[in-house]
Design a binder for these strands. Sequence first.
DNA 1: TCTATTCGTCAGGCCGGAAGACAAATTAAT
DNA 2: ATTAATTTGTCTTCCGGCCTGACGAATAGA
Lengths: 414, 414
Amino acid sequence: MAADGQQPADGERAPRRGPASQQDMRRQNLALVMRTVAAAHPLSRADVAGRTGLTRTAVSSLVDELIAGGLLVEGELERSGRVGRPGRALVLNDSGPAGLGLEVGVEHLGACVVDLRGDVRIELHRAAPNAARPADRTLAELAELAAQIEAQAVALGLRVVGRVLAVPGSVRVPVEGPGRYLEHAPNLGWHHLDLPAAWPGPGTAPAVENEANLGAMAELWQGVGSGTFVHISAGEGIGGALVLDGRLFGGVQGFAGELGHLTVRPDGRPCSCGARGCLEPYAGLAAVLRSSNLTVRHDTDAVGELVRCAEAGDPAVLRALLHAGTALGTALAATVHLIDPATLVLGGAYADLARWLLPAMRTELAALIRVRPWPDDALRASPLARRGPVLGAALTTVQRLHADPAALWQSGTG
Amino acid sequence: MAADGQQPADGERAPRRGPASQQDMRRQNLALVMRTVAAAHPLSRADVAGRTGLTRTAVSSLVDELIAGGLLVEGELERSGRVGRPGRALVLNDSGPAGLGLEVGVEHLGACVVDLRGDVRIELHRAAPNAARPADRTLAELAELAAQIEAQAVALGLRVVGRVLAVPGSVRVPVEGPGRYLEHAPNLGWHHLDLPAAWPGPGTAPAVENEANLGAMAELWQGVGSGTFVHISAGEGIGGALVLDGRLFGGVQGFAGELGHLTVRPDGRPCSCGARGCLEPYAGLAAVLRSSNLTVRHDTDAVGELVRCAEAGDPAVLRALLHAGTALGTALAATVHLIDPATLVLGGAYADLARWLLPAMRTELAALIRVRPWPDDALRASPLARRGPVLGAALTTVQRLHADPAALWQSGTG
DNA sequence: TCTATTCGTCAGGCCGGAAGACAAATTAAT
DNA sequence: ATTAATTTGTCTTCCGGCCTGACGAATAGA
């Protein structure tokens, strides 16, 4: 469910098509200063110059622009005990531009606001029967929630400059340049939704992005992901999001990471896709529930129920999770051999179930990966778990400001 | 065999660490002009300006520098029948800087010289018992071969400015910044070879790179690869090289693309790695030979023998290739689900055997890939086949000049 | 109080591309 | 044939961005 065709076939990524101008140079250096300050917070202009290789003069000019744009603020004098005139501390502005993350789940709505430092400042959740009502009702409530949280943000001195919505479905464009068009969200019963057109609120419509992808990016920015990793989450199907060298990789048609249909048991159980032996009928949420002999009402928290039963020691549930873990291990061994990631991160529902899934998965991984080292702890549960998608949605805006601060006051290529 | 630990764990690729200077801007624009001319050969300065977005003035200045550097040459006046003063044609210099590719195989040495246009100008092959003699003997002969072909290049007016050696083994650094240190080449019996130290010739020692990776890059630059694809080749083991968005992806530790140890038959044949059911004991060259009941002398062209027997209709060989093809199809279905490449390219020995492998592979791929479209012709045999590695080695230099022409006269970051 | 040291800023210079003007070379029209 | 129109390539001028060097400001140590 992670990535189903949300990217037009643009295989060749344009590395920089137009000519390089002095404006681009300026932009790059603004970003460089921004990144440097973000990396090691209280820093004087001279520190930044030392770390970046720019002259103090240039840094001063760049910093002036960033301060004028509201991205940096000048703190007090750093009295560090060293000889010489003390520098003025530069820090990321925690009362400036901020990112808004929204989330539509099957049974809830979520929203959060993150400031430039990446700190979550406000977070709201609300139960909502989104699968059982038309999309416009849900969007109306979401818009209302967004307006409410934005008002709270203003009260904190924050200015929301980007809105991203996490949905359990497929979108046209990946995180880098957020999409506006929702292809399919089977769990919600939403299809071909043009968000700017359908958005009811007074504010701007958010960009849409797949929740699994956003969860993966959140992991990269704040969790245990480190440059190159694979994020596995369970939704309608099983989705892997590939983060390679710090960038989300969607493949040529956006189908990359389709873990759910890796063959783990040749000629095994039939899968909904028409093939046999796919991972999904062994480790998908639906399959686990069926094997557990649990009949969960559709509008109920199935994962929570599984966790409760597992904690209570229900043998059918434990067996189901063991089998699922083994099958997941088989598929992930293939993933490790192909991608060679630094870590595998279990997200979403799998993170909640990690306590029972991990042992079987690690056993299987150790059995199948022999030709290269594979430490047990390279497979981890996400600490963000189900908060990942909203967080990732809100952080998308913040990260974009870090990567290209000039985008705020200079319309142009993000 | 493609990628066995040839890359230090540098997961995070530095996107540009230092500050952007005016020199960088100049470099980028030089590269832009170079790429533009390379893409559509006879082009006037005004054409280049139109395509790049640079002014005619800027293009003139950049072109002057490229001509002075010997990368471009000015042709005759283009009399194109259109009104207005005709422009002077700019073309890539085919008598200027060139790339030298070298290859050490188990039974042969190879060399070729490619000019700036990517045309192969000279190509030499020589049988040589490299597995049966010490490395220094082979290197001595290789250096002699290199000197010989460089002399021929000079006679053609070419100046070799980069040398890359393709080896069937693992190297420290990937193509981008060629390595100098050979880790292991089991087929040759070479281990821990520091090439600059061991090089006997009077000339400079070549950079070393894995032959499967070079074959993949050759496919990208001149073959059927298109931005994002997987290149599969057979050597000691089975190696997949991943080319994603036009860049070779090695994974965190350089192990990416280890197709040979994907599990295709759980609890199947034991593999040399210690696990069971890997692809290698089903589709590796050694396994195919064994199943074919062919006893090939070690110093003989095993692949050629297989092709001859298959053409003659030997039932055991045909059966062996059918089984290998099916197993390859299973592994490649997983690859497609995970990577979502535009194409799969069979290279090296598999390209020679493609006629017999392809049908079973396509059947298996069609059976397992149901959740997304997968056209039969997305799986192809490489047209370069066994010439790929040498070609890729020579083209590495040429591509580097296209991507950063200033590197020729301005020492700095490649 | 004075010196050494470090910070931030100011003035001047250099480099690279943009804008506009001009000569040169061709086609089309008179 | 001559003139107008058009396109090319170069020249001059300008501007924006960073660098170099120098200076006042602010601190620690003598």
